[in-house]
Nucleic acid binder design. Structure first.
Lengths: 218, 218
DNA sequence: GATTACATGTAACATGTTACATGATTAC
DNA sequence: GTAATCATGTAACATGTTACATGTAATC
């Protein structure tokens, strides 16, 4: 025991953890992944197949094969070693986040295109925020009516939903006010737009003035 | 002219656009990329070298070689075709966004670890938000004092900074309130925590009730 | 003149995605 | 019984990262 594992990726732990919550087939896993992780750890369904096999090889999952007609399928269950690996991972500090937003890149480079291009990009982002809000509302519904899976995890899921729904709401509001600003322009020429823009910089939220427990410098 | 280009990636356009803003060497490009794109299109510096060559081969950039001592270096400049390619790209709707946040995954799987693990993860996220706020504050400073590069783009950069600084502020506040919640627990056991959690679901922001201009369905 | 930091790149590798293939089940 | 959709997977490919290698300038 306690041999050092070949380094697993975050995705490995994500999958290991999902199986830990409930034994399931690879297919269910792929589905659940999309339902649950899409907004904070998005991965293609096809990844699951390879990863789950690797985890089984490492002894972190056990595979149970059965048949539907003549077609095989595999159900995976977490092992004691799997739980230990998860616990060890959770004890290490998390990686930083990454945000990829082509829409923002388009703002950065907007002056190579037109005002209408920019409006279009902003509108697309607004639509996405709406989609995300709708999904968050669904989750809310599920938990409030008690029909959501893993009701015993509400206290944790609530933290997540707080983040995700407010992220969506914030994005929505930003898109709306940006659309208003750009709509008020007749083109993307800087002339006459600087003063108002500089003014908005004064509204950006200040640094928190009393860090709760900033770790001591060494 | 107008031959269809072999499909360029978003990263290609990001690089093409940076060169468009100002001709520069590959090294400067790598630096600038990190300074500018890190929070909405993060990529490793080493990518630039390969990509810039490809763009030159396609005729979207021109390369100018000169020497520092006996060592060659290359300065790139955008071509007319490069500008056209950028404009065409800006006219297409942007890809959706992707958020990758290991910290949120750890919340999802928190019950495989301890309360302290979770507090640690939240604290790491709070620190990251602080870092991001500090960077946003620097940009603000640069623009307000007029020392920032590309001052003529303030009207666009202001939209970006609005997003990024508010995203950071939002994340900071979420981390603080989540830390408070988890601190009030003695462990991660669900017992006695559900009611309060369900209550928070009632606070999630509602869907906007009058979409501005939801595109007509077909 | 040795050490360190800046500048310029390459190669090997890791990770992830798209497109396809094909069996089983359901709806008509 | 045939079309559509669900379930299960594989292989080829695209993209991106880490680690290294090495020249040049700055500093002391």
């Amino acid at each position: 025991m306690s041999s050092t594992l070949p380094t697993l990726t975050t995705t490995s732990y994500a999958i290991l953890g999902m199986v830990g919550l409930r034994s399931c087939t690879t297919y269910e896993l792929g589905k659940a992944m999309q339902r649950s992780f899409d907004y904070f750890w998005p991965r293609a369904r096809s990844l699951v197949y390879a990863e789950v096999k690797r985890l089984a090889t490492l002894g972190l999952l056990t595979a149970h094969k059965d048949f539907v007609g003549r077609r095989a399928r595999t159900t995976y269950t977490i092992t004691v070693e799997g739980r230990a690996a998860l616990a060890a991972w959770l004890n290490r500090p998390p990686q930083g986040f990454a945000l990829e937003m082509e829409g923002l890149l388009r703002i950065y480079l907007a002056n190579f295109g037109t005002r209408d291009d920019l409006l279009q990009a902003l509108e697309t982002m607004r639509q996405e925020a709406i989609t995300m809000l709708a999904i968050a509302a669904d989750f809310k519904q599920g938990y409030l009516t008690g029909t959501a899976p893993f009701m015993d995890q509400v206290h944790l899921r609530a933290l997540l939903n707080d983040f995700l729904s407010n992220f969506a709401a914030f994005t929505y509001e930003w898109a709306v006010r940006s659309l208003a600003t750009v709509s008020s322009w007749s083109d993307l020429d800087p002339t006459g737009k600087q003063a108002a823009a500089l003014e908005t910089f004064t509204h950006i939220p200040p640094l928190p003035d009393s860090p709760l427990d900033k770790p001591a410098e060494k």
